[in-house]
Design a protein around this nucleic acid. Sequence first.
DNA 1: CGTGGGCTTGATAGTCCTCAAGTCGGGTGG
DNA 2: CCACCCGACTTGAGGACTATCAAGCCCACG
Lengths: 217, 217
Amino acid sequence: MLGDSAGSLVDSLTLRSIALPPNRVLVSEGEVGVGLFRIARGWAYRYRTSANGCRQIIDFLLPGEIIGLQAALLGAIEHSVRSLTTLSASALDAKLFGVAFRSEPDLAVRLARHVAAEASRVDELLTVIGCCDAVERLAFLMISLYRRQSGRGKIDPLDCPFPLRRQHMADALGLTGAHINRTLNRLRADDIAVIHDHHLSIRDFPRLAALAGTAVP
Amino acid sequence: MLGDSAGSLVDSLTLRSIALPPNRVLVSEGEVGVGLFRIARGWAYRYRTSANGCRQIIDFLLPGEIIGLQAALLGAIEHSVRSLTTLSASALDAKLFGVAFRSEPDLAVRLARHVAAEASRVDELLTVIGCCDAVERLAFLMISLYRRQSGRGKIDPLDCPFPLRRQHMADALGLTGAHINRTLNRLRADDIAVIHDHHLSIRDFPRLAALAGTAVP
DNA sequence: CGTGGGCTTGATAGTCCTCAAGTCGGGTGG
DNA sequence: CCACCCGACTTGAGGACTATCAAGCCCACG
């Protein structure tokens, strides 16, 4: 997500590498010394826990992306982050900000753009949850994660890794695991898309895209 | 929302002032020459239209806040903005960014923080819509808009302007106008909060805050 | 081989939507 | 000044979608 030229500076601020098994906490809501990481391999997700105990997944984080930017800017952190798969990441020095904003305006712009792009994705998810039914929500999640992976090249056409459990999809889309299951069944019965063995196979891209409410490109 | 020292630079980049009646478009989804505004008086809101024609209000924008930051950072704009009330705002020069990020790191940080704060509000709204029922959603919206106004001082305790129509609340919370109405009735019957004549009166702050899932401070 | 977690499925119930009719108030034109 | 009209609000009845709860299944793992 960050361009090449930024890589060198980011690399120079790398403190240490970490490796995590799936489902471990990276950052916990309310922490003060906020962590800043860059994902090398694996997926993570960002979530909040509502007062009634229910979890809302806000965004998924893929390799190359940065964890904790929003938190570092705001000082306090309002969400938690967990590994979704086995994860390896590098911890970055928080003074990346001081450096970036003072002496590297291009990197600063890039970081700000990263925050804005993340925000735009959340806007989109909010719109889908607020406006769409279960089939459309699931279609959106599939198309969205498929595109984010294909954007980084080397993706089999119409097939990509999809490491989410039923419960992750449910918590991301404001549904229950049971209903996710029924909805997946419908998508499979209609021969639109199938999730099997942690892989997504898109059988009918145009129809899936139409359900997701996105253009076909 | 921006500190005083930033004001001078922001002011120096003011191009012209505009005034709008309620319910007018400021920025339209998909535009290229993106506008950047700072609200002087009145409220606006930011929304997206989903493929099925339904509208999702993503955030409300109050006096002092900046419209179009996310859009300016990303180049393309993914949402629309409308005036909620009579609105006056100043248009800012888009080269604010070039200037800010190159020669005014403090302002750059502040702008980035503004984007992050907006993003955090959207995260929160997403969590509420994904996890909570109608009463809790409405309570959240009330507390949230009450706090944003009281944060800027001079607010009658437990009473504040609330210029939203039923349909605005519905579109912000993923409900329908009819159900908003029934839910408002319940909050009034339980003597928790009342909306009357575009004003919100909080009758029982602790219970409203509990429903909203926020601490009482 | 037992155990636990994730997945699957059914029956039932609740929340919220849809649609439609009726009310109210403010603005406009005669 | 009054009649009219339109938009916003209100309320009811019925139905759709999704949640809840519970049970059974399967596989990986100890």
